[in-house]
């Protein structure tokens, strides 16, 4: 089977393309999948994380996956963040200094995840790693990461990839897992059958949690507060639901197909060091 991917931008369309990829390969078991990038002229580097999550879901059904027909620009991006070497490409291109390299963790490896952030986030435009702004940014990344362990039962692990854009003073990071999606989790927990967006809306309400016998439902609120203060952006793509939020607006949309993953993408303004409950923050 050969599937061609369109441009993979950090947008609804980019995640929708991944939902279509997963759907096209849904019946493939014990087979071969060639993912052609011939039609791909632009790729946002952080999209390697959700792409990795989706491809590993397909590979987990005893399929062999190859990435083929890679044009020069995507080749450069996906080599420099280490994605292609995980799919059989030679390990020759040096990692870019602005990349947060594509890395796969076990869902239980939150401490290794923090070691990884300590290694790769300095020099990505953030203030020093011990500043309150950076500490709170690291904290919300941990809140996202641990959701994969607590909620998603993600046996395939957690996929992380990011990119710093020095001229825009913007750092974008995606954390993806291919475990139980948020809409699935809400529906399973309460034995209901809500549409994906309705379930995601519920999960985003402060204090709402699918955990049993223990309090929770705070991590996403902290994430939202941080993004508000920083005037950054957050996206969540999970199952068939997509949510995008920034200080001025939020948007819910439904994918054409089910994305077999939960992806949280955080974009922060590295020049704005306001953080949630920052003493100088008036809003």
């Amino acid at each position: 089977m050969k599937i061609s991917l369109p441009n993979l931008l950090n947008s609804f369309d980019g995640f929708n393309a991944l939902s279509s990829l997963a759907d096209a390969a849904i019946g493939l078991t014990g087979g071969t999948l060639d993912v052609s990038l011939a039609a791909l002229s632009v790729v946002d580097p952080n999209m390697a994380a959700p792409l990795g999550a989706v491809l590993n879901t397909i590979r987990d059904r005893s399929n062999t996956i190859s990435i083929v027909d890679v044009p020069s620009l995507p080749l450069a991006v996906l080599e420099k963040n280490g994605f292609l070497r995980c799919f059989g490409y030679p390990d020759t291109a040096p990692l870019s200094g602005t990349a947060v390299p594509y890395t796969r963790f076990s869902a239980k490896e939150i401490k290794l995840f923090y070691d990884f952030l300590d290694l790769h986030l300095p020099s990505k435009g953030l203030p020093e790693m011990t500043s309150d702004f950076t500490l709170q940014f690291l904290q919300i990344l941990g809140e996202v990461f641990i959701n994969a362990e607590t909620h998603a039962d993600s046996s395939l692990g957690v996929f992380v990839c990011g990119q710093f854009y020095p001229h825009q003073q913007r750092l974008v990071l995606s954390i993806a897992d291919s475990g139980v999606t948020i809409p699935e989790r809400v529906n399973q927990r309460f034995n209901i059958n809500w549409p994906a967006i309705r379930a995601l809306r519920w999960a985003l309400v402060e204090g709402n949690t699918t955990k049993r016998d223990t309090p929770g439902g705070v991590g996403l609120k902290l994430l939202r507060d941080f993004i508000c203060a920083n005037r950054g952006q957050v996206q969540i793509a999970s199952g068939q639901a997509f949510w995008q939020f920034h200080a001025e607006a939020e948007e819910f949309r439904e994918f054409d197909h089910v994305l077999p993953a939960t992806v949280v993408t955080v974009a922060v303004d590295t020049a704005n060091w306001q953080f949630s409950d920052s003493p100088t923050l008036n809003t």
Binding site: D132, L135, Q139, E206, G207, P215, L222, S276, D277
Partner: peptide, 15 residues
């Protein structure tokens, strides 16, 4: 640390 105070406050509130 001040950076973590909102997390503690929220945790207590929702617990």
């Amino acid at each position: 640390r001040d950076a973590f105070q909102p997390a503690l406050d929220k945790s207590i509130q929702w617990s």
